[in-house]
Nucleic acid binder design. Structure first.
Lengths: 331, 331
DNA sequence: CTGAAAGCGCTTACAG
DNA sequence: CTGAAAGCGCTTACAG
């Protein structure tokens, strides 16, 4: 039989109320009593029943994470799994648990959100991506349910929406700066999903820093983050002669662009990617890539959400640093 | 304010007990009453509080999934994410929720298991991998806590351990059969983690089917599932001349082997991999690979566990079919 | 500093 | 066929 708070109380010769207060380390309990109770807890191997605790405290200490349905195909991209790891670490530190839901489409994601909320299962929700006119975000706002988004939400203005993201503008500015100092005068840019906020911010950094430094810019957008997109983007981009480097908003695009370049006398062109994807079976030379610190994004998202739940949050957003990783050739 | 069972009872003019019985569709409630109560539920938008329900039923309807700590590095491999998807699907169908824990090492995994159990948080646990002398498995067995393993556990003999896996022996037999019929007389095999049951079973199928068909076998084992291992395994393997095909126990190894072959006049050698990894940045030609149906493994694991929890399980294991995918060259 | 009592929102024998 | 009552294992005003 499971040991309950009553068993501990009996063993320590106190009331269940006192045991409860010792557990929450209430200042109103005498040190001697605390010590005695703790000994009983230890001895009996007591651990509180979270269900009972949740029922009365109305806090489950569970956070629901909704995986975007595109995740399925995006899983060549290690972002999600690393974000999950970060989420898990932060949750554990704060003594929270994590629940994941995979929607099969946007409707399914919304259903997961509704389900979480209506059944009182989670204290807060974490979304792994911010879409334009995101239905989950809109629903959560309407319900005034605590949530956090990884990525910059459309209406950054609303102070009540929690979010974490990289400073994507700054990250690209930094790359342009390095390239420019390195003598590059004509730089290309290949992106996908032009209407995602992340794309918009990266392009902005690209254009502004380039103009500041007198660098000529050439931009191509494709539909999806695939190798094929990178390849065809590069084909279009390099009709323009003299481009000596290309920034791709994802390593997957960069793989495709690299293939095009290797096939078309472009081996000298410097490639820069985003998201540091281990190229596994990639037979081409490696290229530098911006590490967006996916785990950090997940971790900070949860920290932000929990501080909101505790009403101790100072800010409604958090910027996670990126790091340009320059990679040398290796097997 | 959240609507509770009392509100519904009042609205429908019955007692809370009756509402509860309607929800569980007890046969002892009159149809007319049921209809009335259901209307009230609908009208008030009532959803039961899972915490309260769990407290009394002593079932949380939550399953804890422990991610192996190696997952971090193995995440170039889509197995885990797809298994998670399958797990999620099966859970949802059965009205269960899933909780994930990431241990930082084997100790951390064990802590997660202990934590899940002692706090009465989950009804059962799913492990995503079976190690030799697996501490989590041993602990769970000792506690007699319901759990399921994806992968064949060391002691298959114990009828009380639930597991799901592919028929790895059969999968390799099938490949050898096809190769042999195709005229291959000398076949290589590159594996990693020789002491994993999955390796042992694949090698067994390889050796036995080859001997049956008079095929000469050449085997190399490396430490880890990396490209570098595949590359060096191939280098050793192909000291032997005349090998016309090579079976790699993972696509990652196959990528490395392929690189070696392309660099050493081995483009004609037929490569077969496992786990169908999208080669993303892979610039070499594609090769055939065995789809182990990771999502199916996850789904069946959860089904098995849930039927165990309901005491309706017939068997303690389930074999999930594999499928050899032959891939044509494409971008 | 500590305890008795009420209550969180359900379910389930027990009665009728 | 339905209801009143007890109880799941906690927490937290309220009293002292």
């Amino acid at each position: 039989m499971k040991v309950t708070i009553k068993d501990v109380a009996r063993d320590a010769g106190v009331s269940p109320s006192t045991v409860s207060r010792v557990i929450s380390d209430s200042s109103r309990i005498g040190e001697a009593t605390k010590k005695r109770v703790r000994k009983s807890i230890e001895k009996l191997g007591y651990t509180p029943n979270v269900m009972a605790r949740s029922l009365v405290s109305r806090r489950s200490r569970i956070i629901g994470v909704v995986m975007p349905h595109e995740a399925d195909t995006l899983f060549s991209n290690p972002f999600f799994i690393q974000a999950m790891k970060g989420i898990s670490v932060a949750a554990e530190k704060n003594n929270y648990h994590i629940m994941y839901a995979f929607g099969r489409d946007e409707e399914g994601e919304l259903d997961a959100v509704k389900n979480y909320i209506s059944r009182n299962i989670v204290d807060g929700i974490c979304l792994l991506t911010a879409r334009k006119r995101d239905r989950c975000i809109e629903y959560l706002k309407g319900e005034e349910f605590p949530f956090v988004v990884i990525g910059t939400p459309e209406e950054k203005t609303s102070e009540d929406t929690l979010w974490v993201d990289n400073d994507n503008e700054e990250a690209v500015r930094n790359i342009v700066k390095l390239l420019s100092e390195d003598g590059h005068k004509k730089i290309g840019f290949i992106g996908a999903k032009r209407n995602w906020t992340v794309s918009i911010n990266r392009e902005k950094g690209f254009i502004e820093e380039s103009s500041l430094r007198g660098v000529e810019t050439f931009i191509e957008y494709e539909e999806d983050f695939t190798r094929a997109s990178g390849y065809s983007g590069a084909r279009k981009l390099f009709r323009e002669p003299g481009i000596t480097s290309v920034i791709c908003t994802d390593d997957i695009l960069a793989f495709g662009a690299q293939k095009y370049l290797l096939e078309n006398d472009g081996a000298h062109v410097k490639i820069l990617g985003f998201n540091r994807i281990d190229p596994q079976g990639n037979f081409g030379p490696k290229f530098s890539s911006v590490d967006i610190n996916s785990a950090g994004l997940g971790e900070e998202a949860i920290n932000l959400l929990i501080s909101k739940l505790n009403h101790t949050n100072k800010s409604n957003y958090k910027i996670v640093d990126t790091k340009l990783e320059r990679i040398e050739e290796e097997l």
